[in-house]
Design a protein around this nucleic acid. Structure first.
Length: 461
RNA sequence: GGCGCGGUACCCAAGUGGCUUAAGGGGCCGGUCUGCAAAACCGUUAUUCGCCGGUUCAAAUCCGGCCCGCGCCUCCA
């Protein structure tokens, strides 16, 4: 079951072609650093992709790069760099963050600038079918010519809406709802039948999804804030040209808020992804992002991430214990696994995580007390595979900075020697020293153990 | 104003008619353990699901009204 924003209900997911899924997710416009809201979106769709892959689908995942638009051009004017340099730089930074979040690259990341001929062809098609008209070197989509416009975002009845705020610059449009599919631009434009210009905001996705996935494909995703006008206009263009509904499922992720308001560049209310990732481990941040349902609003606070980190560490510890046991596990992930059943219900990651803890944490306790049965450990291992392979939360030990394992072990035996001799001040000094390096000591009945724990540094405002 | 989403314990978050006298996680507090800590373990933490009515043998779950928060309607993941 997957929630379809198009019908506003959960529907049984079935791909158009057996065994294959075509998924298009709107990518970023790389004109400055990405923030946590972007991170959430791509973590969600990466998780969906992983899950579909687990279910046996071959997923063709297309995520575009809008590498030419007003903001990039503005940035270019400010910095003196070319639009290509700017988009390259911020896209690379974005991909860096994605890697830390364990988000795999899409099957293809097509650029707008690499698909201009297809876009021009698309616009010509719209004009020849009289869904679009040319005015002063720009081309506009005639909203009134397409019946059913507005069904995705629930504004079929909207007529000339909000004239006051929209009319200002584009008074060449025949109707205030009309939107540009091609914008006149002498400086940063490409040659076209209408003179120099560049693509309008929505046409790129229509043209590229069509090129890479066909007239009809399975899933179209993106942030909730893209439903209108972006996705609405996108469907309008595609339907006008092909007469078909481009996407079977519309999947939209909820917004990330900060202090109750949407994270957004324009308001200055955001946390940058790369900054966050320099202070919080990628897997912890990813786990946090998946701790709320993907359609739910997610209000970011450091305290919540701290909470997630603590539970994450337990799973990590469980993995270590299982690996150190003599258990050899190579079973499959059962489709009856309660966590899988949760994911089958509209990718319910919070419920899946609940199921995972319900089953794994008691096993960790039993391992500590030495009473874990083999089948319990195998069941726990299966859950950890779900965490790593489907949720994409890496539980690998990531190392621990400067100090070597050997040095740690030496300091620990030194401390234990002091303790034996009841020189507690010295012993505690060593414990404190290790603690400052992030090494936490645990005295257990079976000897002293240690873990490395990356703290979350203070994050200001 | 129009369209949409949401309000479950200290926090996060499942559950959407009986299987729940409301999962799971975090936190807090008390106890065991410990030289002291940490870890671990045991116990405690919503007779109640924003408020008020209604439907039903039965509701957090359905219906109506109200209150509150958020998103979109302009660029936005």
């Amino acid at each position: 079951m997957l929630y379809n924003s198009g019908s506003r209900t959960k529907e049984v997911f079935k791909s158009l072609k057996p065994g294959k899924v075509g998924m298009y997710v709107c990518g970023i416009t790389p004109y400055s650093d990405s923030h946590l809201g972007h991170g959430r979106c791509y973590v969600v769709f990466d998780t969906l992709r992983r899950f579909l892959t687990y279910l046996g689908y071959e997923v063709n995942y297309i995520q575009n790069i809008t590498d030419i638009d007003d903001k990039i051009i503005n940035k270019s004017l400010e910095t003196g760099k070319t639009p290509a340099e700017i988009s390259r730089k911020y896209f690379d930074l974005f991909m860096d963050s994605m890697e830390k979040l364990n988000v795999a690259p899409a099957s293809n990341h097509p650029k707008v600038t690499g698909n201009i001929p297809e876009i021009i062809e698309f616009v010509e098609g719209l004009i020849s079918k009289e869904f679009a008209y040319e005015r002063g070197g720009s081309v506009y989509f005639r909203v009134s010519s397409l019946k059913g416009y507005g069904s995705l975002s629930g504004r079929e009845d909207a007529q000339e809406e909000n004239l006051a705020s929209r009319v200002d610059l584009e008074d060449e449009k025949a109707d205030s709802r009309d939107f540009a599919v091609w914008k006149k631009d002498e400086e940063h434009g490409w040659d076209s039948p209408w003179g120099k210009g560049r693509p309008g905001w929505h046409i790129e996705c229509s043209a590229m999804s069509r090129k890479f996935l066909g007239d009809e494909f399975d899933i179209h995703g993106g942030g909730l804030d893209l439903i209108f006008p972006h996705h609405e206009n996108e469907v309008a263009q595609s339907r006008a040209l092909t007469g078909k509904e481009p996407a079977r499922f519309w999947v939209h992720n909820g917004m990330v808020t900060l202090k109750g308001d949407k994270m957004s560049k324009s308001t200055g209310n955001f946390f940058l992804l790369n900054e966050l990732l320099s202070k919080i481990e990628g897997p912890v941040l990813r786990f946090y992002l998946l701790s709320a349902g993907y359609r739910q609003l997610l209000d970011f606070t450091i305290e919540k991430v701290e909470g997630v980190k603590n539970s994450f560490l337990k799973l990590k510890e469980l993995k270590k214990e299982l690996e150190n046991s003599d258990l050899e596990y190579d079973g499959e992930i059962s489709t009856n696994n309660p966590a899988i059943l949760a994911l089958l219900d509209d990718l319910n990651t919070p419920r899946a995580i609940g199921e995972i803890f319900k089953l794994t944490l008691p096993v960790l306790e039993k391992i500590y007390s030495g009473s874990a049965e083999k089948d319990e450990m195998e069941a726990a291992w299966e859950m950890l595979r779900i965490v790593e392979e489907i949720l994409g939360v890496d539980l690998k030990d990531t190392g621990h900075g400067e100090i070597s394992d050997e040095d740690i072990e030496n300091l620990i035996s030194e401390r234990n020697a002091h303790r034996k001799e009841k020189r507690f001040a010295e012993a505690d000094a060593i414990r404190e020293k290790l603690s400052l390096m992030g090494i936490i000591i645990k005295d257990t009945p079976s000897g002293t153990k240690w873990v490395w724990e990356k703290g979350i540094e203070d994050i200001d405002e």
